Amino acid sequence: MTSYTIQEINNLLKGELIGNTTQPIEGPEQLQNAKKQHITFIGSHKYVKYWADSKASAVLVNDNLTVVPDENRAVIKVKNADLAMAKVLELFNPPAPAFESDIHPTAVIHETATIGEGCKIGANCYVGKNVSLGKGVILYPNVCVFDETTIGDHTIVWSGTVIRERCIIGNHCIFHTNVSIGADGFGYRPSDDGRGLVKIPQIGNVIIGHHVEIGANSCVDRAKFSSTIIGDGCKIDNLVQIAHNSVMGCSCIMAGHSGLAGSVTLGDGVIIGGSASIKDHTTIHSGATVGAGSGVMNDVPAGQTVLGYPAQDSREMLKQWVAMRRLTKK
């Protein structure tokens, strides 16, 4: 079993070690669930009180918090305990599933496909006509990549993911289980006789930048024409919907169950909270934040935080909630 001394961990983190422990650290754990072989972390004042009763032998703490070491228990002060814990998690991260062969014999690969150096393709994968895979791409079992799609270097695609035709995927992306990239956008109009619906053809594609991560069971629909675009560094949670012709800037975050309707535009660094929904043809400018469960009906200025349904400036919405609460108490 992998273990490290507290000195080895502190050398990695370059923090301030207070106290000491001779206990080998065998992994990280939550503060209240930790055992003596664990290191834990405290990033907020409200959790400091739990340190005394925790069985952890070491703790990472923000340097603005007062946490006192105990007998054979150490404290490492760092600027940001969350980021420090991320480094510790990397130390104990188990290896990814192994491939017995680089390309499994049950994989179906079209003769026109280009497979880069060091690619690994698992059992029952399908790689279509004129697909191009860059260096070191990993397709885990049961992945489908359809015709004329390009995937950049060192992108990882987990099982069950389907990447439809003509998509363009960047380098170092991660698509988790059952992601859908490039399915038809949702486009229908009433028929002339008013007795049915006419499907609008969706002939565009999806373009995804570099270092994008998309969570399990999320969908990015292809455009009606032109492209649905996800910028470099975006991070998308599980069960997220991104509709046709939406455009996301760089380093946006979308939490679980949130969704963009058609032709939504996000600037750089936009944060969308869980279960928030964004109306079609809406623009959310760079640095804005949409609170969880909110419904955005209008454009959001750069840097603004909005809450509620319909979403409004967070300060105004909080005032309304306080006023409503006072009314109910009368």
Rank of each mutant, 00 (worst) to 15 (best):
V270G: 01
V264E: 06
L260A: 07
G273Q: 03
I253S: 03
C250F: 03
I272S: 10
S251E: 15
G262M: 11
D268S: 08
C252H: 02
H257Q: 12
L260D: 10
A255R: 01
S263K: 10
M248K: 02
D268V: 03
S251I: 01
V264C: 14
M254T: 01
S251R: 15
H257P: 07
I272P: 08
V247C: 06
S251L: 06
G262E: 13
G274S: 15
G267E: 10
V264W: 09
L260S: 12
G267K: 06
V247P: 01
G249P: 05
C252Q: 02
G267F: 08
V264N: 09
T265R: 14
H257D: 01
I253H: 05
V264T: 13
V247M: 03
T265F: 07
G274D: 09
V264F: 14
S275K: 13
G267C: 09
G274A: 15
A255H: 02
H257G: 10
I253E: 04
C252D: 00
C250Y: 05
A276I: 06
D268P: 12
A276L: 00
I271H: 08
H257C: 14
V270M: 00
G249R: 05
C252S: 03
S251T: 09
C250H: 07
A255S: 01
D268K: 12
G249F: 04
V264S: 09
M254H: 03
S258K: 05
I272K: 09
M254L: 04
H257N: 09
I253V: 15
I272A: 08
C252F: 00
G262Q: 11
S258W: 02
L260W: 11
S275L: 09
G259T: 14
L260Y: 12
S275E: 10
A276C: 00
G256K: 04
I271W: 07
S275N: 12
T265K: 15
S275H: 14
I253D: 02
C250G: 05
C252K: 00
